[in-house]
Amino acid sequence: MIEVRNVSKSYGNFLALDGVSFKVNKGEILGFLGPNGAGKTTTMRIITGYMPPTNGDCLIDGKSILEFPTEVKSKIGYLPENPPLYTEFTVREYLKFVGKLKDLGKSDIEDRINYISEKCGIKDVLNKLISKLSKGYKQRVGIAQALLHDPDVVILDEPTIGLDPVQIREVRDLIKGLGGDHTVILSSHILPEVSQVCDRILIINKGKIVAEDTPENLTKKLKGQTRCNLILKGDGEKVREILTKYSDDMEISGSEELKINFSLKSEEDLRPKIIRELVEAGGVDIYEFSTERLTLEDIFLHLVTEENEGRE
């Protein structure tokens, strides 16, 4: 449905996007993840036809946005980073204008406004001035605007920003409900949000895609990786000898009471084995053995920081 082909974008000397390519299938929800300034917004602006790429092309339903701008644009619903609201209008007037702008027929507009305002929870504020609404409501009007003409492709740039936890959950459910009928791309720098809603995650950093997979696979990739903390007293050398068999990035601190931090990279759970070996070796008193599982958050940080180090 959406195909981004080797897209680059530079602002003067600054390369914001560097040869980004990916595909989104029909009905799929793709999460676009990355730190601020990674190029998420730029990518979305190129897909929606707001700005042309310096290089490359972007196809929606097999049609290039550069060659058929109006035709392609009518298939897209877009919520920019800042919801584009005419604050002097009421919500209803605003949605009416958007409907006309997006080629909705006169009779359809009323129906769609009713339907979408129900879905986005803005029915009560339809006749209020947008300038009088709270940030959460404004954001929801922005989402309603993107969904109003029932577009095939929905692109949401940070849709849950500025919402309170309850609203975030509502919006999340709303987006989940879009999958299947609509092809959705949403960006965020908040990980749990993306992992709960999306079928696939694309992590972008400094204008490049650094990872692309389902949330499950991304987690699985580092599932074997477990970080362990060990506190013990005894012969440091002997302990080191044993642990090097299992881990290659051991850190030992403390003199009498040794604090050891190491990671295990194996599908198999090695913890009982290690403890047995330490005890059988003798002369070692174990005070604590704890593990911390790597979350998607760590993967994200890991990928992003690794990339940074590689560049500098």
Binding site: G49, Y50, T70, Y78, P80, L85, V98
Partner: peptide, 14 residues
């Protein structure tokens, strides 16, 4: 200033 130009330029209007 209101960023509404982004709406207009991503809508099907020449």
């Amino acid at each position: 200033k209101k960023k509404t130009l982004e709406l207009l330029l991503t809508s099907p209007i020449r």
